[in-house]
């Protein structure tokens, strides 16, 4: 009798301590992600003198000195602008080129479909930024060297396989009967697409566009290889790593991180659905 009672108490004790451990590990892992970001935030929101002083405070002083220094640094704002232009171009190109293929994969059985899928999946096995090397030579010949468009082409190569697979999985989530119903109700293929499929898919397309934007925004190697005068923010920061003062690096790093936070927040609903089917 007492034995049974003790066992019960023991069990509930292990269970509650297990739950405590579970909650603690989740909190710890959240902290593991957030604390480094917070430390960067402290440095960004501190005066340049504070950033270079020792020891550091663990509370930001909300001084915009570092960010002002960043904005005033020669070439930095142009780099920021270049990054945005390249990322926007990449976003538009990868969705416009990728989405039709995603639609084809989800709706049609055709000869060569497997081969095409292979081509898309093949891109994954290769470190794509390396392809910037031969393209640098090619671009000089065609006058695309050191242009936002040239770099956007390379970034589109990076983003395109994702755009195809993500839109494939998005289109697959829309029952084909909806389109067929539209056809029987007086739509052509095109109007059925614009009136039925597009409104349903728009949020998902936006998410994959944002994804493409961030792929380009974050890319360092190809940007550094392909641009000289018209550096993107990542390429510019990389180039100045050696000599730039700490507060410039931190402010630059912070500016790089901000879109990431917004991006993950904006696409959080789609992140898992997109990856779920797209990666089978």
């Amino acid at each position: 009798m007492t034995d049974a009672a003790t066992t019960l108490v023991d069990q509930s004790r292990t269970r509650s301590s297990g739950r405590w451990l579970y909650a603690a590990s989740i909190t710890l892992l959240c902290a593991w992600v957030i604390v480094p970001l917070y430390l960067l935030l402290i440095n960004t929101l501190s005066a340049p003198e504070t950033v270079n002083s020792f020891p550091k405070s663990f509370i930001p002083e909300f001084d915009l000195g570092s960010l002002q220094f960043f904005a005033g640094f020669r070439g930095m704002l142009e780099a920021l602008r270049n990054s945005i232009v390249v990322a926007l171009l990449t976003m538009v190109m990868s969705v416009l080129i990728g989405a039709p293929a995603g639609y084809a994969l989800s709706r049609f059985e055709f000869r060569g479909k497997e081969l095409f899928r292979m081509l898309i999946l093949l891109t994954r096995a290769f470190p794509l930024p390396l392809l910037a090397l031969p393209l640098a030579v090619l671009f000089i010949r065609t006058g695309l060297d050191d242009t936002a468009f040239g770099l956007a082409l390379v970034h589109t190569t990076l983003a395109l396989p994702f755009a195809v697979l993500i839109t494939f999985s998005l289109f697959s989530g829309i029952p084909v009967e909806l389109e067929e119903a539209a056809w029987t109700l007086g739509c052509t293929r095109l109007t059925a697409f614009t009136k039925v499929v597009l409104p349903l898919i728009l949020p998902g397309i936006t998410a994959s566009a944002i994804f493409a934007f961030v792929i380009s925004w974050n890319e360092v190697f190809a940007a550094a290889v392909l641009t000289i005068e018209n550096r993107t923010l990542t390429a510019f920061l990389l180039q100045t790593l050696g000599e730039a003062p700490m507060h410039l690096k931190f402010a630059g790093g912070f500016i790089l991180v901000v879109p990431a936070l917004i991006f993950i927040f904006a696409v959080r609903k789609y992140l898992f659905a997109m990856w779920g089917i797209a990666n089978r």
Binding site: C30, L39, I42, N218, V220, G253, L256, A260, F263
Partner: peptide, 21 residues
């Protein structure tokens, strides 16, 4: 999940700078 996936959007350069801090 939102918190854990934040780094997904962060570039390797930014990550390097964060740990530099």
């Amino acid at each position: 999940l939102y918190i854990w996936t934040i780094p997904l959007g962060i570039s390797d350069l930014a990550a390097g700078i964060i740990w530099l801090a």
